[in-house]
């Protein structure tokens, strides 16, 4: 099913400036794999050397943290929006 992934400004240099990318996926894991297949330079920023999602990458499904759901195994349905949010980077 088609879902939308929203990207933080920090990662848009790896998606040709796009703030949103559509992918076909049934779970969060599939969606992120598809995203990093389409934009290979993104991969090392999202996944660590053992191919696990980096611990500080927060993934929200329709505004809810996937940690309070089924993690990267959380199922997706048509039209879902997935948001990738880093820990805050700011002027402190």
């Amino acid at each position: 099913m088609a879902i939308t992934i929203q990207l933080p400004t920090a990662l848009r240099t790896f998606t040709d400036g796009l703030s949103e990318v559509s992918v076909e996926a049934a779970t969060i894991d599939e969606a992120l794999r598809q995203l990093t297949k389409n934009y290979a330079d993104l991969k090392r920023h999202l996944f660590d050397d053992s191919d696990k999602l980096r611990s500080f990458v927060n993934v929200y499904l329709n505004d809810e943290d996937i940690r309070s759901q089924n993690g990267v195994g959380t199922a997706l349905k048509q039209g879902d929006t997935v948001m990738l949010i880093p820990a805050i980077a700011g002027g402190r």
Partner: peptide, 18 residues
């Protein structure tokens, strides 16, 4: 500097993308 523009160093900024 954080090694990646996506990082968990709260408060620090990856200067090239801000």
């Amino acid at each position: 500097q954080p090694a990646s523009p996506l990082h968990g160093l709260e408060g620090m900024r990856y200067q090239e993308t801000v």
